[in-house]
Design a protein around this nucleic acid. Structure first.
Lengths: 110, 110
DNA sequence: ATGTATACATAATTTTCTTATGCATAATAT
DNA sequence: ATATTATGCATAAGAAAATTATGTATACAT
């Protein structure tokens, strides 16, 4: 994506959204999924992702489960009950934000 | 707007867009215009606005013209030639960002 | 007098990212 | 064989962009 700055603030919501669709995911998997879904437009860096996951966990929105696959560590994250509720809320806010921006960009429509 | 965090990074683009439609505007006017256009959803704070205007000016995208109206100071900003070009670019990026986000939120469509 | 609106500005702090590292295993290419 | 790429986690230093809290000043209404 040209202006990476614009996605500031939406990373947590993206993570929550993916977890609402996938039951459980691990960090690296999330970065690959986002890259695939956005056709390479959006690249989540590790320096942003891992702190974000830790924060969501600390807030009680995610649970972690460590696994070992092919002798490599994986940390699977899944939504808690509270996380599921919060996801609905955050997605609504993101949708509202997008509509607000479209309204600003194109006041004639909307 | 519920999640004010989301609009982080888009303030400069909003300013540029408004100036591309209005020839010249002053700071306070911009805050009021945004409030009106978004029906109160988005409130630009002075602590964000003025530094942003100064930065855009420092980057050569805006020109300033000081005026005195009703014995009160006003600083009118307008796009420079370079600012006009940059506005097109930033709006395209914002549009791309919005589409990317919609793609993430609703992978079935788009 | 007191509060609200208009109009600018900056400083301290916080949030959220980027960039740069670091560690470790597995698979692939040369 | 060995160097690179992919997989997988993590943190620290720094930058960017906001929030929050001030500060100054005029005009108008109660």
């Amino acid at each position: 994506m040209g202006n990476q700055k614009l996605y500031k603030g939406s990373l947590q919501t993206i993570i929550l959204k993916l977890l609402s669709e996938n039951e459980k995911m691990y960090g690296y998997e999330i970065t690959q999924k986002v890259k695939a879904l956005t056709k390479g437009e959006l690249k989540i860096t590790e320096g942003a992702l891992y702190p974000a996951l830790h924060k969501l966990e600390a807030e009680g929105l995610l649970d972690v489960e460590v696994a070992k696959v092919d002798n490599r560590l994986r940390k699977y994250y899944k939504l808690t009950e509270s996380g599921t509720k919060e996801t609905v809320h955050r997605l609504a806010q993101l949708d509202e934000f997008i509509q607000t921006m479209q309204h600003l960009l194109n006041p004639k429509l909307a």
